[in-house]
């Protein structure tokens, strides 16, 4: 594979990004290398079928079922696969648990690694230079920008996803949720609390 070609071929395509995508799609379609219907299907999958509702289901189950929680923390991949959550960018899942002493937070400083089958496509801020640059060095300042302030006794552990392991944060169950069932609990689990940049919603 050539390495550093100063004459990047992408410069031959239109500079406007939307037109650049269109040009590439058109060329590949004309040559029979991609099928536009397959592209529609991929977009539909990540827009409508796979998203943070999957991870929320896992978290809610862990909150009510001690055996499930134990198995999830021991080896998450087969446990979430049993719920149907497996696939691209989620082949090796590790669940990390928040406690009063330890808050976990996930970043990918080198690109944008993220547990797709559990959380879907990462939000823009997760892929931003600001988050990638700052999350590992000053997680508490970043958390403050999300409205989260942790006591100084709570350690922050930032997971930089440098390999194919994808991390899911298991947040602490909010107080006052003792009577709630799995569906009601899942509704409290936000995307950000499974990345570690947020906390679950309080019950209303």
């Amino acid at each position: 594979m050539p390495h550093d070609d100063p004459d990047h071929p992408h410069a031959l395509l239109p500079p406007d990004p939307a037109l650049r995508v269109k040009a590439l799609e058109t060329i590949l379609t004309r040559k029979g290398l991609i099928d536009p219907a397959a592209l529609d299907e991929i977009i539909d999958t990540y827009q409508n079928k796979i998203g943070p509702q999957n991870g929320a289901r896992v978290v809610a189950r862990a909150w009510i079922d001690p055996d499930f929680r134990k198995a999830l923390l021991a080896d998450a991949t087969p446990v979430v696969a049993d719920l149907g959550f497996y696939g691209r960018q989620g082949e090796h899942i590790v669940a990390v648990e928040n406690t009063p002493d330890l808050h976990n937070m996930v970043v990918c400083t080198l690109c944008s690694c993220y547990p797709w089958p559990l959380l879907g496509i990462p939000p823009g801020w997760y892929k931003s230079d600001a988050y990638r640059a700052r999350a590992a060095r000053e997680p508490r300042k970043v958390l403050a920008e999300f409205g989260v302030t942790l006591p100084s006794e709570t350690a922050v552990r930032v997971w930089d996803s440098t390999a194919e392991i994808r991390y899911l944060v298991l947040p602490m169950r909010p107080a006052g949720t003792e009577g709630l069932g799995e569906d009601d609990l899942a509704a409290l689990v936000t995307r950000d609390c499974m990345i570690g940049t947020g906390l679950p919603k309080e019950p209303s």
Partner: peptide, 26 residues
């Protein structure tokens, strides 16, 4: 960092989804 709510669209622009899909398909 500029957080967004969970309700934001998955793809902020239509071409974002197209770019992801063309890349995966290729």
């Amino acid at each position: 960092v500029r957080p967004k709510s969970d309700d934001e669209p998955v793809f902020a622009e239509d071409w974002h989804g197209r770019a992801l899909a063309v890349t995966l398909a290729a």
